[in-house]
């Protein structure tokens, strides 16, 4: 497969996320990921962009971009998500515990938890004024 690089930039509003989901699922489908792996990429990108818009941009991101770059490496689809919110590494937050009883259950943190569960690798980088989260999904795995 020849290397691929697709880019999309949206504004930081919840109603723009559908575009990102369509963009990522079309890319994942074009390179032959399984339907379950495509759903995993869709969930991860949705949760990541929702967190950026709700927390990083505080629901005031109409003029603040989120850039999505999909590229293929030899054995994986790699998705970079770049935003201009305050520096924040979501990976250092403790995971919510899925075995917790209903009453003690945490309301937050599930989005990044799901992202880590469904993707094969998730990395955070602060790059100048950008937060960059890099998600990887390997070919041939669920």
């Amino acid at each position: 497969m020849s290397p691929l690089e697709n880019r999309l930039t949206i504004m930081g509003r919840l109603d723009e996320i559908a575009q990102v989901r369509d963009f990522v699922t079309a890319t994942a489908r074009a390179i032959g990921l399984s339907e379950q792996a495509i759903h995993h990429c869709e969930l991860a990108i949705d949760e990541t962009c929702t967190n950026i818009i709700e927390h990083g941009y505080q629901l005031d991101g109409s003029a603040k971009p989120i850039e999505i770059i999909c590229e293929t490496a030899s054995d994986r689809l790699v998705i970079h998500i770049r935003d201009q919110g305050p520096a924040f590494n979501p990976l250092v937050r403790p995971d919510p515990d899925p075995t917790t009883d209903l009453e003690e259950r945490s309301d937050g943190g599930w989005g990044i938890y799901f992202t880590k569960k469904v993707m094969d690798d998730v990395q955070y980088l602060r790059d100048g004024q950008f937060n960059q989260l890099t998600l990887s999904k390997r070919f041939g795995l669920q």
């Binding site: 759903h39 869709e42 969930l43 949760e47 209903l102 009453e103 259950r105 309301d107 599930w110 989005g111």
Partner: peptide, 16 residues
């Protein structure tokens, strides 16, 4: 056909 953590939050909140 699709539900994210946002949907889960609503049904958990209602169950509580």
């Amino acid at each position: 056909d699709y539900m994210s953590s946002a949907g889960l939050r609503e049904i958990v909140s209602a169950l509580k």
